[in-house]
Computed example of a mutant assay.
Amino acid sequence: MKNITITDVAKHAKVSKSTISQFLNKRYEYMSEKTRKRIEESIRILDYKPNIVARSLKQKATFTIGVVIANILHNFSTQVIRAIENYYYEQGFHIIVCNADDNPEKEKNYIEMLRAKQVDGIIIFPTGDNLTLYKKMKEDEFPIVFMDRTIEELDIATVILDNKLAAKLAVDHFVEKGYTNISIITTSIIRNITPRIERIQGYKEALIAHGIPLNSSYIRNSEQAEIQASLSQMYQLKIPPQAILAANDIVLHEVLRFVKKQNLRIPEDIALISIDDVPFASFYTPTITAIKQPSVEMGRFSSELLLCQIKKERVKNDIYRMMPELVIRSSC
């Protein structure tokens, strides 16, 4: 069978090849609704499939975006990926998603692979341990946006939650409910991962603002496999905490497992707030108070920043902090 070309479609629709090109690039403002429908009908009748390779060569773009996720297990990560994918689908782009598992070597390999595939830009949840690679991308003027984590000395556009405010909202709500012995639990901070460090800082600052002494025994960070043991140690203290701030959704799962094993009641025995509003929070018994991240807005905004760079438009390489929201339910 003969390969149907853009010339065949133009001839069938009785328009120029440039009009077909404008249609394929979704520049519909250059044509009437009647012309657009005629082209759609011609494409359907002829079963035309655009030659992506030829399009890429002509426009010097692959219309593909890379996304390197630090840890795809986080609910926040999957929501952001969905928002990025939706945005670029509307723009006629594809995305390639890579999960680095918070492993700098995996991250490095994925970034190098994506660049070898000549993607047009990359959104990265950086591990922070590939500074030379990030700097090289910056020097090459390669389109890049950081998500969720900052590396301030590199001057790369970054979209991140206001993590200190997120922790403050939680502590303020605990105090309002009468709790003073408040714990925060995060996953490991060995690599100084921005959200974890900033949430602990925000927690400390909020307690100090309320005149509540800091208790280092209530501040815990560990790998996921060790969170249960850390909780057990904390509840063997002479004065165990009255309330727990789970600094992310992975910690929340471990806290709920611990509560069930120990036959504790929420909020009677322990009040609980989670940073990240997981899907089950609204129907778990009791429903879980959460600090919600604007994950869809963050994914879309990071996509807009990257597309501006791809189009050679001016972008401020600022750290864009998005506002958290307290969602009050029954766990506190």
Rank of each mutant, 00 (worst) to 15 (best):
I189E: 02
N192M: 12
T194R: 01
T194E: 01
T194H: 14
P195W: 02
R196G: 01
E198Y: 03
R199W: 09
R199Q: 06
I200F: 10
G202M: 07
K204N: 00
E205T: 01
E205P: 05
L207E: 08
L207R: 08
G211P: 13
P213M: 04
P213R: 10
Y218S: 09
I219Y: 07
N221G: 01
S222E: 15
E223M: 08
A225M: 08
E226M: 09
E226R: 11
A229Y: 12
L231E: 05
L231C: 13
M234F: 14
Q236L: 12
Q236G: 07
Q236D: 14
P240D: 06
P241Q: 10
A243N: 10
A243R: 05
A246E: 01
A246P: 00
N248E: 11
L252M: 12
H253V: 14
H253N: 11
L256A: 08
L256Q: 04
V259T: 10
V259W: 10
K260C: 05
N263Y: 11
L264V: 08
E268Y: 08
D269G: 12
I270N: 05
S274Q: 02
D277G: 01
F280G: 05
F283W: 13
Y284V: 02
T285S: 13
T289K: 02
A290I: 03
I291H: 02
Q293W: 03
S295A: 15
V296W: 12
E297Y: 11
F301R: 04
S302K: 07
